[in-house]
Design a protein around this nucleic acid. Sequence first.
RNA 1: GGCCCCAUGGUCAAGUGGUUAAGACAUCGCCCUUUCACGGCGGUAUCGGGAGUUCGAACCUCCCUGGGGUCACCA
Length: 565
Amino acid sequence: MTDAQKIAELLYPNITKTVEDYVKQYPPRNLNPNAEVTRLAPSPTGYIHIGQLFQVIANRAVSQKNNGIFYFRLEDTDSKREVAGAASAMPEVVQHFMPIDEGFYGFHKPEKGIYGPYVQSKRKEIYQAFAKELIAKGLAYPCFCDEASETLRDEEQKRLKVPTGYYGQWAKCRNLTYEQVKANIDAGKPYTIRIKANGDGHERMIHSDLLRGKISFPKNYVDYILVKSDGLALYHLAHVVDDTLMHTTVVCRGEEWLSSVPLHYQMFEYLGLPIPKYMHTALLLTKDEQTGNVRKISKRLDPWANVQYFIEKGYPSEAVVEYLLNIANSKFEPWRRANPTLPYTEYPFDPSNMSKSGAMFDIKKLDDVSKNIISRMNSEEMYERVLAWAQTYDTPFARLLEEKEEYAKQVFAMDRDGKPRPRKDITMWSEVKANCAYMFDLLYYVKDRHLDFEENISLKDTKAVLEEYLFEYDHNMDKQAWFDNMKKVARANGFAGEMKEYKENPSAFKGHITNVSTMVRVALTGSRQTPDLYEIQQVLGDARVRARLVETIRVLKLFIDKGQN
RNA sequence: GGCCCCAUGGUCAAGUGGUUAAGACAUCGCCCUUUCACGGCGGUAUCGGGAGUUCGAACCUCCCUGGGGUCACCA
């Protein structure tokens, strides 16, 4: 037995399974030969970051192409960072936007798939088996240096202006004998496991990235820690082990990982395992509104950093996805224009035309995408979606919608169903209530609302017009007759029935048909901005139209009596 | 600082040696219009800089500059 083998046995006497055993235990997946297996592997911080969602979209798109697999793995090897109990919500949030095929679905739910466990804290023995093999081969070793001596080393290296890190002459534990290791172990000293790097800082390697093409790096020369003193693997080891055993074919991850590619290659080589394909995507950034500088998206400064924000605001999930798809793939937008009704899942995503440079997150553009998506929905779909949102985020409104289902659908249908150019005034479900409040008596009281009449028309004239409009109002008129009637009312009160007449001789009139129309609009809804007035009246019904006119006239009288103009 | 990535309008970006340098968002103006929208038309605005290769460079090469990442017992 070599010293290295003796050390391996000393450190891991209870680990009996070998790398080979595990490779056999998790046989290759039975998939279409072109199918790709991708994953999202977040740590359990409790929330899904918009950048992670961007990753989900890229990963999902890659796997979807040839019926591959997209799975969720929980990277909870760092208990310090963990937000207790928060992990379970993460897959659910992801699935609000994109389906997960396999893996971790929350601690209260069973895992799906035979390549688990998909939670890293449950894979300690597996990582240790891989570590043991590396140690036995002399490619990794235990290190007894403590944090204090590491800090010292770091400072000294900075002072000498040499690269920082545990390497070469600085790697004090690199060549300990079995006896030295045993003495330390017997003394109860904690230890980490480090890789024995074979790079010299000059020799180079080539990485071929799916997105970035060939990249040349110096081979890894730093003896990075693979296993922490608590026995749990660090990301680097976990990545190699898990993505090997779970048969990930494309490791699609953020650009921040690019610099650890040499380390990862080294581990695959040491273990004699095939290297997966890599794809390092650009990071999502933002432009700081205060300073105008480009910066990372911040949970503290950007409320939308946590994708829960979009769920709470009631953005349709497909709006967020399509916006991100827009950023991820430049060909998406023309495709969407050419295929306005197809679901985005039909889009043939091509990883090779992803942008290599980091994009600024632009919520204005997202709003536009969202408005367009909502404008394409009919009243039925609107009703279902708004209700589903309100049931969680606005229960009184949900109750109202349920009680008045048919009426609510009529409200949503205004300027929407059957219209070739529907309104685009809804960005998110949380806007709906305020947007149509005046259609519900429960949400709108004539006597309370602000009299938002036009400033240049006197209250007296307004009152006179509304009184006559009320007198002339016939709910059964068709649209043309109704509007002709309104013109009649306008003329009888000194307003121009046609805009053209007014423009020809403005001084001859108190105002024009638009002013009259606005009076009625404000009297009925309290707002100058509404869908088609005729449709509103039809949905409101004869009784309520009259009631609101009467009430408005009463309030106007009150103001006039008080001397207001 | 070392290593690595990136660079077309305010934003997302098309473009791969010859283009009036697309398109979308935003912005501004006009038109349509019973409001607001929608829609239509148009405007402002981009190849970071410098060398080189070439008849010709946004595109190829080099240098510079700028932005970003990474250099943890975090991922």
